[in-house]
Amino acid sequence: MNTERRKQSEIEALIDEALRADPDFSLSSSFTDKLLIKVHRHLAWKELFTEFALKIGLVAGTLIILAICLIFPAPKEGNPVILFLMNNIQIIVIISVLILFTYFIDQVLLRYFFRKKIVSQKT
């Protein structure tokens, strides 16, 4: 009976030991470095995009103030600014989208890829 108990506790101890043992494989030694490259990319993207959004907000705000200044003092009927905007709305939208897109490529995408290249060259 005593022997049986001893055997059992020995088995339990071995199972315990096995349960506490690390897995046979471990993370690669470069795991943290690879991870930090991804984090840097994430931070770069966030920073560039925020900067872009701020600049666009600033330009849009200035344009809105300018439009208010031009529209309100003039007479409501036959206001030349409103008439110009109404007649050329399509071309204005197309040009605005093109400018926005080009600016986005230049300020966000190209700078992002440039930074990414520098980081990968460093590592």
Partner: peptide, 17 residues
């Protein structure tokens, strides 16, 4: 990011397991 590196090194075994 250095603090994050420290955090990763401290907890990577837990995540890996």
């Amino acid at each position: 990011t250095n603090a994050f590196r420290f955090l990763v090194d401290k907890h990577k075994n837990l995540v890996w397991h």
